[in-house]
């Protein structure tokens, strides 16, 4: 979570609001912020830290581990219409990489801005070539895009 806090300015510049969720109480969130996270992120956690003790929220998002009584690592990118555009779920021992979440947000925002006229191929990052789906592109993606040049 400190990694999210450290990238918060970038997320805000993209108009992204962050909500974190775990089974811990608000009181534990406060102490974790005060004792540890604020030291790692070099600032207080700037977003809402939600509490989901019985896993009610985690269950409908498919990220609640009933046996362990905790949430898995689940990351959801939700667009302004409230639609989930991306999700990534991982078991606890490996952390996420914020730059990948941010890359995906850039890509989904680009697609949304072009109203779907442009799509982002594998490995796309801002400034790289997008593809314009249409009859001419069928069977000719190899002319437009190479995994060796653009990935």
């Amino acid at each position: 979570m400190s990694a999210v806090a450290a990238n918060y300015d970038t997320l805000q510049s993209l108009g992204v609001e962050v909500i974190s969720v775990s089974v811990d109480s608000q009181f534990v969130h406060k102490v974790w912020n005060d004792q540890e996270l604020s030291k790692m992120a070099k600032k207080d956690i700037p977003f809402h830290m939600a509490t989901d003790g019985p896993g009610n929220v985690g269950k409908i998002y498919g990220v609640y581990d009933e046996a362990a009584g905790v949430e898995l690592r689940g990351r959801f990118i939700i667009d302004p219409d409230g639609v989930i555009q991306a999700m990534e779920v991982m078991t606890p021992p490996v952390g996420r990489k914020m730059s990948e979440a941010i890359r995906q947000i850039y890509a989904f925002q680009h697609v949304r801005k072009t109203k779907g006229a442009e799509v982002c191929p594998a490995g796309w990052s801002p400034g790289k070539k997008t593809l314009k789906p249409g009859p001419e592109l069928v069977g000719t993606v190899w002319k437009e895009w190479s995994p060796f040049e653009n990935h």
């Binding site: 979570m1 999210v4 997320l11 993209l14 108009g15 992204v16 609001e17 962050v18 909500i19 974190s20 969720v21 775990s22 089974v23 811990d24 534990v28 969130h29 102490v31 974790w32 540890e36 985690g58 998002y61 990220v63 362990a68 905790v70 949430e71 898995l72 690592r73 689940g74 990351r75 959801f76 990118i77 939700i78 667009d79 302004p80 219409d81 409230g82 606890p92 021992p93 490996v94 952390g95 979440a101 947000i105 925002q109």
Partner: peptide, 22 residues
């Protein structure tokens, strides 16, 4: 309430627990 954020992009992050190591 999540629906109060309609009109904005939201990054919703679940994690195992406070004071865990990763």
């Amino acid at each position: 309430k999540l629906s109060d954020y309609l009109g904005k992009w939201v990054l919703l992050c679940f994690y195992p627990g406070d004071f865990t190591f990763v």
